[in-house]
Amino acid sequence: MRADVTLEWGGETLTLLPERAVWWAAEKTLFIADPHFGKASVFRFAGIPVPETSHDEDLERLSHLLTMTGAQRLVILGDFLHGKTGRNEAMFATLAAWRQRHAETEMVLVEGNHDRHAGALPEDLRIPCVQGPWCLGPFHCRHEPQEDTDAHVLAGHIHPAFRLSDRMGASLRAPCFHFSARVGILPAFGSFTGTHGMRLEPNDRVFLVGPDSVIEVSPTLAKR
């Protein structure tokens, strides 16, 4: 059973999707963060074997999201590429073909630390790279989360995750959306990415991402 979560935040309505994206319906804008394309190649270049397929599936998921939502704009909150040694023709060809499928969609990359290291995207991808904070309505788009006065910040970088445990000692760890009053952090979009366990401050809200649903963790469960 698919379950999205609708969240009122910054005076706007956002939908948190289990595909690890945020959908802003009013502006037909889709946000994702940290896909880390080419990460498998970076590893292979260093002599560490990693299956390539994960990136292909990530692109499929992104295509599916764009089609499903009918998004007119895609905002990538940084770390589109993983590293310099991950740049290769095969990957850019795949990306170009994918871009062609969504030629009508406007795409923007807010530069992340990995993007800086990996170098610029080919022009023909038509994904302009901007510096954060990049303003969109009430939102400031950034890669690294940071509070801005008079704005609600959407960011990535952290790869947030949260651990739940039950009385019997069983526990479960999953990527999550993490929202405080002024900063919303998206889970990493890429499936070959690690996660960082979050600690909760009072009034923080955490939404766990499962295979096909997003579930808010109640404050009592989150209390440790």
Partner: peptide, 14 residues
């Protein structure tokens, strides 16, 4: 090659 499937690992080197 990084694994059995040759084509999946183009940039592999060890």
């Amino acid at each position: 090659r990084g694994g059995q499937s040759l084509k999946a690992y183009p940039q592999f080197r060890r």
